[in-house]
């Protein structure tokens, strides 16, 4: 049970950091949660993290870096990497929407503030929801659903995130100008690869 809770939490954490600029509430979590700080060692050791005010930290360091990494210089959308013409598919033809729709998920763009549903933050949050569903299935001893959800997670990772997110995350790591995003990129890359290895071991074959 710990494993699935851990996976759910980490997908949520990475999704949140990569989806939008931080707000004070999430910044506090990133400042104070020891587990998080362990995941993000350079952030943990960064002197300015503890010396600057939250507002200054957000406005002058973190949010500019986020903007640079997700809006200006890098493109955190799947179709940018998977389409030959490097265009982001903002309409209904985006392949990721098929799988969201299949599980009755619909992206609320007003909340997400992204241009299409294949943003890395959205895809990671989808993994988080699959993990949450798995937690519920475990609680209800619904083993069939657990097995199916593991397969879905494995398939989604392989047909979407792993196809492109590593490229984005490697670039993000080298483009980042703050320890928070440097560590997040590294952690996210390491985590999805590791998670895939785990899932590959428990899911008989890619369905």
């Amino acid at each position: 049970m710990d494993e699935i809770i851990a996976r759910s939490n980490i997908y949520a954490l990475l999704s949140r950091i990569l989806l939008q600029e931080l707000d004070v509430e999430i910044l506090n979590t990133l400042m104070e949660d020891k587990t998080v700080l362990e995941f993000l060692p350079h952030w943990n050791e960064w002197e300015l993290r503890t010396t600057l005010s939250n507002q200054k930290l957000l406005e002058e360091y973190l949010n500019p870096d986020f903007t640079n990494l997700s809006l200006l210089h890098l493109v955190p959308y799947e179709t940018f990497y998977t389409r030959a013409d490097q265009m982001i598919e903002t309409g209904g033809a985006n392949p990721v929407t098929d799988i969201y729709s299949a599980y009755d998920f619909i992206v609320d763009y007003a909340v997400a503030r992204v241009v299409s549903s294949d943003h890395i933050g959205v895809e990671l949050e989808f993994m988080h929801h699959l993990c949450q569903a798995q937690i519920k299935a475990i609680e209800e001893s619904d083993h069939e659903s657990v097995t199916e959800l593991l397969a879905v997670q494995h398939r989604f990772l392989n047909t979407h995130l792993l196809k492109w997110a590593p490229m984005y995350l490697i670039n993000m790591k080298y483009e980042s100008r703050t320890p928070l995003y440097y560590d997040t990129a590294e952690m996210a890359l390491e985590f999805i690869l590791s998670d895939n290895e785990m899932l590959s071991a428990v899911v008989p074959k890619v369905s």
Partner: peptide, 28 residues
Amino acid sequence: YLESRRTFLKGAAMTVAGAAIAKGVFST
């Protein structure tokens, strides 16, 4: 990566649950 996975298991010990951290971009 499986080695690092043991580190990721720590994630279960986060003080704030993932559900509270996630932005919640999906609706059903």
